[in-house]
């Protein structure tokens, strides 16, 4: 590898691969919006036993993260941001 290669910009096939991986993660996940909806309501139900969650502020979706094996692969991950209104919420 030449020294100048370090400054070379990413090849277009690498760009294509990265874009594809991203688009496929969301394609594959969005195949079943029903499942996403069910995951969302189940999470709310479980958390509501212990705390009062801000239902309108919930953000749940599938993204992708780098694999821990450092093999360059990425894995889908469930990302959830759930604001809590009140920690001392008691279950009914």
């Amino acid at each position: 590898m030449k020294f100048s290669d370090i400054f070379k910009k990413k090849s277009s096939s690498d760009v294509a691969k990265d874009r594809l991986k991203l688009v496929l993660v969301s394609d594959r996940a969005s195949c079943s919006p029903e499942i996403m909806q069910r995951i969302r309501s189940d999470i709310i139900e479980v958390l509501s036993k212990y705390v009062e969650v801000d239902i309108d502020g919930i953000d749940i979706n599938i993204t992708q993260i780098d694999s821990e094996e450092k093999d360059g692969k990425t894995l889908p991950a469930l990302y959830a941001n759930i604001p809590i209104k009140n920690m001392n919420h008691t279950a009914k």
């Binding site: 090849s11 277009s12 096939s13 690498d14 691969k17 594809l20």
Partner: peptide, 16 residues
Amino acid sequence: MIKRGDMMSADDVIDI
């Protein structure tokens, strides 16, 4: 094109 990095190879596609 694959050689100069401007096209995905069959292996790249299979990986994905």
